[in-house]
């Protein structure tokens, strides 16, 4: 069955959604070049933060351009990385003379196109650094982080990097803090049914009605196992265990320990409802609390999606003093808005 999509020309979906996104920003953001967004008031001398990736996963990545968040986004076509000329246009639009940090998910197409964009920016004497997001612990072992995919953990990571970019004195400083946020963020996703490609209506992958893809990526890349469909309370600890194990096995970080402060994010891949996310969150908090982890803040909702894909992901970001201070900064965008401090703080 193909989904009823309220669209116009299927080949103009990405362009038209970005035009709509600019309207949602109501003046805070402007459309740049062919298909990029940039904040309308980036101060001179600011170290700039540029995010980006394929469209179709709204509200990320382009919805993370905002106050104390990213300065701009290079938007690709549906599920496809932005081409180098779009990356260049976005880079030029956000550059204020202190260099630009590229922050995006580790996918082959994104890496190739952003690298070509960086080469073009270099011809313009704009200094560019790149930090890749690779939070999906099911996509490769901790010793092969260059093979890991970036999934929902991008939301807390971009939030922290955006906050850091407000006061970063140099590109070096922003890069270092952003790398720390990436290192301390780990996610696990599951999928129950596929999303569809808007232009064809075809599903992005096949999965048996009675199965769950454990560790499946946001485009339906296979994870660690297909398991029989089960309950929220059965699935939740299995997902969290994969995150705990990863912190334990990875030599680059300490294991999660009692007293650690974390941000916990329950993401819906699209059609999984808030109701289901909340039921999972309820069980997850019970487990996190039992482990002695202090859940400093919670995010819940459909922020990293793949059309009507059914599934959820959990992301854990461990905060140290620096990251906690950055987390407390308020931020505002179409994708993610928070007040100063934290919920319940």
């Amino acid at each position: 069955m193909s989904h009823k999509k309220l669209i116009n020309d299927p080949l103009k979906v990405a362009d038209e959604l970005v035009e709509g996104l600019v309207e949602a920003y109501n003046g805070d953001c402007v459309l740049v070049g062919q298909r990029s967004l940039a904040l309308s008031n980036i101060p001179d001398g600011k170290v700039a933060l540029l995010v980006g990736g394929g469209s179709g996963h709204e509200p990320i990545y382009h919805g993370l351009v905002g106050r104390n968040l990213a300065d701009g986004a290079a938007c690709g076509d549906i599920f496809a990385a932005p081409p180098p000329d779009i990356v260049l246009e976005a880079t030029q639009a956000v550059n204020r003379g202190k260099g630009v940090l590229y922050l995006y998910g580790n996918y082959a197409g994104d890496v190739m196109n952003f690298d070509m964009g960086a080469e073009l920016a270099g011809d313009d004497d704009i200094e560019v650094r790149t930090v890749l997001i690779w939070d999906d612990v099911c996509s490769a072992p901790p010793t092969q982080k260059n093979n890991r995919r970036g999934i929902a953990g991008l939301v807390p990571i971009v939030k922290l990097a955006g906050a850091a970019s407000q006061s970063a004195g140099s590109l070096d400083e922003l890069e270092a803090t952003t790398r720390k946020a990436v290192l301390q963020t780990r996610s696990v996703g599951v999928s129950m049914s596929p999303g569809s490609i808007p232009a064809t209506g075809k599903p992005t992958f096949d999965i048996d009605e009675s199965m769950i893809g454990l560790g499946m990526g946001i485009h339906g890349e296979p994870g660690v196992a297909e398991i029989p469909m089960t309950t929220a309370d059965d699935l939740t600890p299995r997902m969290l265990d994969l995150i705990f194990e990863d912190f334990e096995k990875d030599d680059e970080v300490e294991a999660l320990a009692a007293g650690d402060e974390i941000v916990f994010f329950v993401n819906s891949l699209g059609s999984t409802t808030m109701m289901e996310c909340l039921i999972a969150l309820r069980k997850a908090r019970e487990i996190l609390d039992a482990k002695g982890l202090k859940t400093y803040d919670v995010i819940v909702g459909p922020l990293v999606t793949c059309q009507e894909m059914a599934g959820i992901s959990f992301s854990v970001t461990r905060l140290d003093d620096e990251l906690k201070r950055l987390w407390e900064l308020p931020c505002q965008s179409v994708c993610f808005t928070k007040m100063e401090g934290r919920y319940g703080g």
């Binding site: 394929g54 690709g76 076509d77 599920f79 496809a80 990385a81 932005p82 081409p83 180098p84 000329d85 779009i86 996918y107 082959a108 197409g109 190739m112 196109n113 070509m116």
Partner: peptide, 14 residues
């Protein structure tokens, strides 16, 4: 091709 396609395909076929 590179400009219109984006993605890994645009990069490598371009």
């Amino acid at each position: 091709m590179m400009s219109s396609m984006g993605g890994a395909s645009g990069a490598v076929f371009g």
